[in-house]
Design a binder for these strands. Structure first.
Lengths: 330, 330
DNA sequence: TTGTATGCGTTATCAT
DNA sequence: ATGATAACGCATACAA
């Protein structure tokens, strides 16, 4: 690997000059600049981003830590984030956040040490108090997707889970359903709670009985199992609200195996708008979650913070009902 | 951020000594070592991985570049690779390879500059000749997933696409099918060609007519559209071989929309063993592709190469038929 | 316009 | 056992 020194020798100039033409900072005579370019291409010289980072305390990079790679949701997130970052002339470095608060924090730390200019965290594990502290202590901007942190609203990209679940309930009610079951996410998940809460509150608002909740883990299989439990419990219901599309699909299959047709016998409403849901049989009525917009916004916000620009506060993103086949009127 | 200097001052020792206790290289009196530890924790000092990388020319990191984040396939890949790397005490840095040979190479370069100890590349774009050159020129090991490079077999983790497609064809034939259609990947994809070739060659072997191929892009929607084209062409067929599960699902839906039942009227065979395929209606008969094993092997091989250990040559991975509902006998 | 010198935070080679 | 000091490859303030 050729270094700046080699270029100096070949071009007959000093490191400062090479650095100048490289970063186009300061004035350089055209002839010497040309000589430098000559040397650079002759040696196939590439400045070491590492050394540069050490000297400038910044790379041209944004870090992203995600805590799981499951499902269409994360595919979209990563793709859009990567694309947006690239378009801004920066690079995106992705790390796995693992399955604990500690490992998420480790990933963040590692990224910070690598001198990324900002880190975007899709968190599932770190408690709000810790996040607050991180946002205060870290020398670079930290943007959070999927959670609100009090006092740092401009750095939080999140989704109105509660309102979306209300939408879901309202729709089901409008179709004449009155008895429900829920397949929701893990008990530990805040957002899972919010979705459930939004759903239940709406039922209460209409003087209906709240529904029992079965917990899954967002994988298709867990939806299948949860629905089987539900069926075994012999309770009466005409519609299921699932906390994501995967579990909705699992539930539909469980109903199918029990000889029940969706939506003729039971309606199922999903969440996420997984692209596959458009083509399943029956296709999935679901709540669209604008992941790509959220990823885009997260990166944009990061870029603004890096440039020390005015930070615009961000509204909670909200869901949209996608009406397809899996919900029918009673 | 506290640096090594601060530790020096507080502990009353030199940089060399701090470095010694940090890396446990060389002898240090217990008392002074303790003093250093004291200072370190008092200042919450973390050595800069960047500076360390500059000095040692190596980080404890493996780089992974993937060219797309679509589908369950990549989720598994990323998850398993990350997990395996972590278990080996290293970190995994992931970068998007984008959609061109150039961007893939850029990602590799960027990772190399960051002094990762090895890079694993899931390639879709870079031609073999370029890969060969990269493997020769790069100062660190480059492991390739999804393509064979002549002369570097120990560094290539790939899948016997051809044989898997043969399996698929044999199975369909064993069920009495004789007229087929294929929905395959993009024309540019080598593996897509291999799958198609394996399928066609098997038909030829049994003196059957080869089938026409429709190209998709591995997304569900493209399977849907391809199948509609197929249907519009009015050709006669009793089974469809799709190059991945997503497209198989899209095809099934297209058939459904055309009033055709799977598998009663038409059989559909997928590829990948997407976890969701177990729960679709009908569930998907498919070829399992051992992504996780491949990811695991890639990381393990990388680790061996980093340690300059003997490199064990790797056999081509092969697929396994998963029999479910979407294929029936004629 | 160009060069010198210093710093970035480590590791590593010498001495001592 | 420990301490100077030179690398590592670059940026940059200051001189010239």
């Amino acid at each position: 690997m050729a270094t700046i020194k080699d270029v100096c020798k070949l071009a007959g100039v000093s490191k400062a000059t090479v650095s100048r033409v490289l970063n186009s900072t300061g004035q350089v005579k055209k002839s010497t600049a040309d000589a430098v370019y000559q040397a650079i291409s002759a040696l196939d010289y590439k400045p070491s981003s590492l050394a540069r980072a050490l000297a400038t305390n910044s790379t041209n990079t944004i870090g992203l830590v995600v805590s799981a790679f499951e499902g269409a949701y994360f595919s979209s997130l990563l793709r859009k984030a990567s694309q947006t970052t690239l378009q801004a002339g920066k690079q995106l470095l992705i790390m796995d956040g693992g399955h604990s608060s500690a490992s998420e924090q480790l990933a963040i730390e590692s990224l910070v040490e690598r001198k990324v200019d900002a880190v975007i965290l899709y968190t599932r594990q770190i408690p709000e108090a810790v996040l607050k502290q991180l946002m205060n202590d870290l020398s670079i901007p930290l943007i959070i997707i999927n959670q609100q942190v009090e006092g740092f609203e401009e750095r939080c990209i999140s989704f109105n889970q509660y309102e979306a679940a209300q939408q879901a309930a309202e729709y089901l009610l409008s179709k004449g359903h009155k008895e429900f079951a829920c397949i929701t996410g893990p008990e530990s998940s805040i957002n899972s709670h919010l979705r459930l809460q939004g759903f239940q509150d709406t039922l209460i608002k209409y003087n209906l009985q709240t529904c029992t909740a079965y917990h899954g883990d967002y994988f298709t299989q867990s939806g299948y199992h949860a629905c089987n439990e539900l069926l075994a419990s012999k309770q009466s219901f005409t519609a299921i609200f699932a906390a994501n599309d995967n579990m909705a699909m699992g539930a539909i299959r469980a109903l199918h195996d029990a000889g029940l047709q969706v939506p003729q016998d039971i309606s199922v409403l999903g969440f996420d708008n997984d692209p596959a849901g458009e083509f399943t049989i029956p296709s999935l009525t679901t709540i669209m979650l604008p992941v790509e917009e959220m990823a885009y916004t997260a990166v944009k916000q990061a870029l603004q913070l890096i440039d020390k620009q005015e930070i615009s506060t961000i509204a909670l993103f909200s869901g949209n009902l996608i009406v397809r086949e899996s919900v029918d009127h009673l």
